[in-house]
Write a protein that binds this DNA or RNA. Structure first.
Lengths: 130, 130
DNA sequence: GCACATGCTTGAGGTTGTCAAGTATCGAGT
DNA sequence: ACTCGATACTTGACAACCTCAAGCATGTGC
């Protein structure tokens, strides 16, 4: 019944292409809080895809100067990824558009939005609460 | 805030690959109610992508015997797509899994599920109500 | 030190997506 | 009837994403 709501799925690629990004690149940028390096392994887990995939995605983001690869101090096998200044401003623009309520939500009343929020928050596993 | 809930996005590809399908192929199958031919143009609109894309997707679904291309009676330019018997059973299995409540929803109480339903239903444009 | 696991990269192969160009058909205006 | 423009589909070239298998460097446990 409500899986129809997943028609919202089109929104992410649309926002992405407006910023000259792809959906996968958006997810990586979203993960990278400025100043917080992240091992590529963690990125692969977050995207739930093969590690070899991340190599290419990070390659393209790095080529555009949005992030950097660095060596990890504790383990020389792992490469961490850090967002650059340019990447951070891009990320801010991205997040602004992602969190802007889509038209489907805007159609709801203020009260409905609030109850929707609290219900959905309860549906999230406790680890992911922000 | 609740765009985090779109982490559910991973569910469709997962269900798809379990049935040896891809996400795009799932969407096409979902569109094709048995006995109701659909012009490829309409499929492209529903998927919000280029028409040339549909050619390949339909090619692969047709090669697996899940649907058929036919000529349209009223306009010889258009090709309509019809789901086959095999495609219909595949579609039934697909829909069963898609509409099954994901774990995030199952965590909610019965009453919360009901109010969630009614709110989301109001968020859908009236044309899409089922 | 050795065997094994782990993190990343590379290469091949398949699917999805874009765009541009081409063919066939339709519809309207002349 | 004829032409012109729009529409429906296909094809080809190219890029991105995805998986798998293989390879290299590094850590870890015996």
């Amino acid at each position: 019944m409500l899986e129809l709501l997943l028609a919202e799925r089109r929104r992410v690629p649309a926002i992405a292409s407006a910023l000259r990004l792809s959906a996968a690149q958006c997810h990586v940028l979203r993960l990278l809080e400025p100043g917080k390096p992240l091992a590529m392994r963690r990125v692969a887990e977050a995207l739930a895809c093969d590690a070899s995939n991340i190599t290419g995605i990070v390659d393209r983001l790095e080529a555009r100067g949005l992030l950097e690869r660095r060596a990890a101090a504790h383990d020389r096998r792992v490469r961490v990824v850090v967002i650059t200044r340019r990447g951070a401003t891009m990320r801010a623009r991205l997040l602004a558009r992602l969190t802007a309520p889509p038209p489907a939500i805007a159609r709801l009343s203020r009260g409905e939005q609030r109850t929707l929020c609290t219900i959905l928050r309860r549906a999230l596993p406790p680890s992911q609460r922000e």
